[in-house]
């Protein structure tokens, strides 16, 4: 029999949205808990440098989220990390989250589950395909890598890989142009160690003795394929919503995001949404923080007025 715990508010997800919701919930005297399947910090943890969060002109992503964690800890909000939620029931007056270790119940839930990286869709699997340059970039010093994607993450991480001593970066984007900030594009290509290919996709990987030796690339317009010798691949193809826990319980958009109201409420009473899981045009740390604020204040109002 798993132990059962009662709270005012369950916060599902410990990224910037969830952690900010925890701060506001604590200050509203709500008994809240953060349940996080990974470690707190969300995708920000994998960001080498954050330069658009007011008050920190430049800060490592993990350091920023470490400070948010200290703030939440200082307010006494419990945080359960590496916490696998096996069942989430959102209907009814009392919501339930059952993890591998305990059952949590509360009349209000804030969904802040965020997004996860899109995987590289190729038939050959190998260990040299990565989604985090900070985690996995160091062994590629002096080697050649392929970076997939043409957004800010792809360019920022490519620059980071070069700073680690990576010899050459080949960057491929399936669309007709790169979408990263102009400054990042200029910096990368000015390095003389990077080349970019638009309208290009990765169709397969070649390995020898289970080690990556090359990527097979294709020009999508002409259909021409060629072999690009590389030692590693870093994938930055965008994100998908983390909605598996509740996709059959609340209203979602076709793309799988939560169409939250301006007060963060969802199609179910007592269920609020915040952060990257919300259907919205911009997904930044600052927008997630704002969402978390609104969700916690709305949850407090919901609990007070019910």
């Amino acid at each position: 029999m798993k132990p059962e715990h009662r709270y005012d508010c369950l916060i599902i997800g410990g990224g910037p949205a969830g952690m900010t919701a925890a701060v506001y919930a604590a200050r509203a005297k709500l008994k809240a808990i953060v349940l996080e399947s990974n470690i707190t910090g969300g995708l920000v943890n994998s960001t080498y440098v954050v330069e658009n969060f007011p008050s920190y002109p430049s800060i490592h992503g993990m350091e920023l989220m470490g400070r948010m964690r200290e703030h939440v800890d200082g307010l006494g909000v419990p945080v359960e990390e590496v916490c696998e939620i096996e069942r989430l029931e959102l209907a009814g007056e009392v919501k339930t989250a059952e993890t591998d270790e305990a059952v949590y119940r509360a009349p209000a839930v804030i969904l802040a589950t965020g997004r996860k990286p899109v995987a590289l869709d190729v038939p050959t699997e190998c260990d040299q395909v990565h989604h985090c340059a900070i985690c996995d970039g160091a062994p590629y010093a002096g080697k050649r890598v392929l970076v997939t994607g043409g957004g800010n993450s792809a360019f920022d991480e490519s620059l980071y890989l070069l700073s680690l001593g990576v010899a050459h970066v080949t960057l491929v984007e399936i669309m007709p142009r790169f979408f990263a900030a102009a400054a990042a594009q200029e910096a990368l290509f000015a390095s003389g160690k990077a080349e970019g290919h638009t309208e290009t996709r990765v169709v397969d990987l070649e390995t020898t003795d289970c080690r990556l030796t090359a990527a097979v690339l294709q020009d999508v317009a002409s259909g021409r394929t060629w072999r690009e010798p590389v030692d590693g691949v870093f994938v930055f193809l965008g994100q998908l919503p983390n909605n598996a826990l509740f996709k059959n319980q609340i209203e979602l958009t076709k793309a799988g995001y939560i169409p939250a109201a301006p007060d963060a409420s969802t199609s179910l009473p007592g269920v609020f949404a915040a952060g990257d899981i919300v259907d919205k045009p911009f997904r930044q740390i600052t927008t997630a923080v704002a969402d978390g604020t609104v969700a916690a204040l709305s949850a407090e109002r919901f609990l007070r007025c019910r």
Binding site: N38, I39, G41, H60, M62, V82, I134
Partner: peptide, 14 residues
């Protein structure tokens, strides 16, 4: 492990 590696921090919790 490695410093400032989110997957490593995760595995430390694991």
């Amino acid at each position: 492990f490695k410093e400032l590696c989110p997957h490593c921090k995760n595995m430390e919790k694991v």
